[in-house]
């Protein structure tokens, strides 16, 4: 009799537990050297944010440039942090421009999928597809349906 009276409450608790376990958020904890040995060449960033929710899910924290192993090809790396508590599913693309500011002819960069856990920092590196490339632009888009 007592069990019957408590059944709705029990079911509610069960449902709540199910919902919480299904929505369990995973966020990333990181550990790194306090005195990095890498010689980083950080660059100033110019950001244009048109999507505020994406702006918190993909926050650029460092932009650096360098050369590929062949010693001549331009290389760029951006570190982005997801400053929310849930996993962000985004797409990104890197466009390359020559010394005249023209998009490299014949190069159609594809949108690439990227998943970043809450709090996680991810490094995205890109190597120029031609020695003519001197400038670049990263574009981030929220995944469709999110």
């Amino acid at each position: 009799m007592k069990t019957k009276r408590n059944l709705p409450g029990f079911l509610l608790l069960l449902a709540a537990a199910g919902i919480f376990s299904g929505c369990a958020q995973t966020t990333a904890n990181t550990v790194e050297s306090a005195t990095p040995r890498a010689q980083i060449s950080p660059e100033q960033m110019r950001k244009v944010t048109t999507d505020s929710s994406l702006g918190r899910a993909v926050v650029p924290v460092m932009l650096s440039t360098g050369k590929a192993d062949d010693g001549s090809t331009f290389k760029v790396q951006i570190q982005v942090q997801n400053q929310t508590r849930s996993t962000a599913y985004v797409n990104y693309r890197v466009d390359w421009f020559d010394a005249q500011g023209m998009a490299l002819p014949g190069y159609n960069p594809p949108m690439k999928p990227l998943a970043i856990e809450g709090g996680e920092i991810k490094s995205i590196a890109a190597v120029a597809p031609s020695p003519k490339a001197v400038d670049f632009r990263f574009t981030f888009l929220e995944r469709k349906g999110d």
């Binding site: 192993d69 062949d70 090809t73 290389k75 594809p110 690439k112 590196a125 890109a126």
Partner: peptide
Amino acid sequence: FKIAADGLLQSLYDSP
């Protein structure tokens, strides 16, 4: 195909 080719080429251009 495009994502795979782009990733493979990035790696090739980054190598000596």
